[in-house]
Design a protein around this nucleic acid. Structure first.
Lengths: 201, 201
DNA sequence: GTCTATACTCTGATAGAC
DNA sequence: GTCTATCAGAGTATAGAC
């Protein structure tokens, strides 16, 4: 593969990501992707046989931005309160760098749940370890009694929601883009506080 | 309009809701909607000129299931802790009866943000009142210092997430449908506890 | 109001020249 | 590798009979 080829492939992936994120799989047009990449449709098919294949390539790339942070957190050797603090920081940072991911994933979940679940499996995400740790610390009285399934979902939900539902939140609270950016950044310490206050015995 | 006509219109709306929810606007096919309604494509266009019009009708109906509960909460004359307890109960109940709403709205947000924001305005949802109440109670020391924008988003996020991201959550924690139903029901008291623990001074 | 048949447009994909 | 031209299929929408 020539250097020109690599550049083209890369610019296709970037263009495809933009369009798939904005329009979803069904809404995206190969023509629009080609325009964004500054090439023509035929070349898209030359590099990625079909729309499906192109989507999978994009999705794979997107997922690889998010899962490592989660995996790292799940397997770290830390007390839960420290782990949760670290996780929220890493996770929110990843989301700030890729703010489109939640909407993209939730969108994909709707239309093609299997393609996503496949990647969860492939990434080796396993919450059992963290689940066990939470149960342990509850038993030892380090944190208050709470089921791991609830605590974990609560944390993820609070992190993701302002990204996934940004248009609603931003509009309801009447913020401009800069203000929303500040808001997102301030949530880092807020969520940590909120969780720690809630699970303290 | 005859009785038969009303039934047809209703069954079209039901069918359209199912399909739009499952496939999104772009993914939905008029043929599939017609099949679900037990009629043919031509009749769809007879009742709702175009796919767009049909979608708007469905969306309007869906939104009217969710907004009243929020409005009621925002304007109720109760102390914040009671209000929040009531809200979470009402909101989760509405979600259990219409579990498709979050995914549908987030999906719509992606492809057509404006059509959604229009409805928020039209429904007269105004968080200022609740915002002021939270600020007040913080000032009077009834609840700990927390910004209303964070508290409100945290609560909504924890309520909605398990519905919006159901396939992921259910898969990761390896639950079947019945187990997930039980899980969703148990979140009602869980979220109330979680929030109250966190905002207690 | 409801149907069958069809017109028209859009879009994913391919053929083939350079 | 990249382009132009074109096909084949799908999908929305309409015409017109009943």
């Amino acid at each position: 593969m020539t250097i020109a080829g690599e550049n083209t492939e890369k610019s296709i992936l970037i263009a495809a990501r933009e369009v798939f994120i904005a329009k979803g799989f069904e809404g995206a047009r190969m023509q629009e992707i080609a325009d964004h990449a500054g090439i023509n449709k035929a070349l898209l098919h030359y590099y990625f046989r079909s729309k499906e294949k192109l989507f999978e390539a994009v999705f794979s790339e997107v997922a690889s931005n998010l899962f490592p942070a989660m995996k790292q957190m799940l397997e770290a050797d830390l007390q839960f309160k420290e782990k949760i603090t670290m996780f929220i920081r890493i996770y929110l940072k990843a989301l700030e760098e890729n703010p489109f991911i939640p909407a993209f994933i939730l969108n994909t979940l709707n239309t093609n749940p299997d393609s996503f679940l496949k990647y969860i499996k492939k990434a080796g995400l396993n919450p059992k370890l963290l689940q066990k740790q939470i149960d342990d610390e509850v038993a030892r009285g380090i944190i208050r009694a709470i089921k791991a399934e609830h605590l974990m979902v609560n944390i993820i939900a609070m992190c993701i929601f302002p990204f996934a539902a940004r248009p609603i939140v931003q509009n309801i609270f009447d913020m401009n883009n800069d203000e929303y950016q500040t808001y997102l950044e301030s949530r880092q310490t807020e969520i940590v506080d909120f969780v720690l206050k809630s699970i303290t015995v």
